[in-house]
Amino acid sequence: MLQLLKIDLKKLTSYRTFWIICGLYFITLLMTTASGMEFLKWLARTVEGFGQSININRIPLYHFPDVWQNLAWSSGLLKIMIAIMVVISITNEYAYRTIRQNIIDGLSRKEFLLSKVYTNLLLSLLSMVLVFLVALVTGLIYSSHLNIDYMFDGVEFYPAYFLEVFAFLSFALMLGILVQRSGLSIILLLNSYLIELIIKENIDDYVPWLIKFFPLESIMNLVPMPFARYAFQQIQDSVSLQAVAIALVWTFLFNYFSYWRLKKADL
């Protein structure tokens, strides 16, 4: 396993685009998650009435235990950046035809795919660890008092966030393998939310129970949007096991489709 991961990292670590995209991604992740209060101030300035009706300093954005879900959800918005890197990494192999040479040189098709999947796991893990650390640090800074009893409530959103990133990267990898062209794959990746939204809206009236089984929807449901609680609305503040199960099945299917396509293809 480690050997396959090393092979893929060897390809990526000398690739400048990889460092630029990863750098941008992790810096953006860091800055976005750390600048929530600035965002609230901006909202108060721009949105009329926002500052009057709500005192932003009383929104416990970074207070334990709220901070866990808040940051996990916000970070989920940025995963598209790293997914584009995954698409570039796999479609490059087709563009340069190095996938063919890798197989000729002795990798099996399965090993080739696994090397990419392991990189996806690593990127998901790094994202999770980074956001977890930001949440921990900001939580310690902003929380007025620490109570170990409930301080870590909601930390289970981190494994869920990990799955969210990994599931989406698996989807991106599958798109890359099916389409093989980087531009088209990226457009499809960006468009997939819109396509799914349109389908969901059209069937909403007939089979509403089906909605949660949609692939991107299931990924989004892993860490639900928490901010409505600050408008005194009920939110889901724990990870739904059903959502995890559905997302796991999709993650398996994405990677299985990739494997199936790769096995059948003449490279």
Partner: peptide, 12 residues
């Protein structure tokens, strides 16, 4: 084996 053209990562 070398099939058809040489194939390598151009940026390496």
């Amino acid at each position: 084996a070398v099939l058809e053209h040489p194939i390598f990562y151009p940026y390496l």
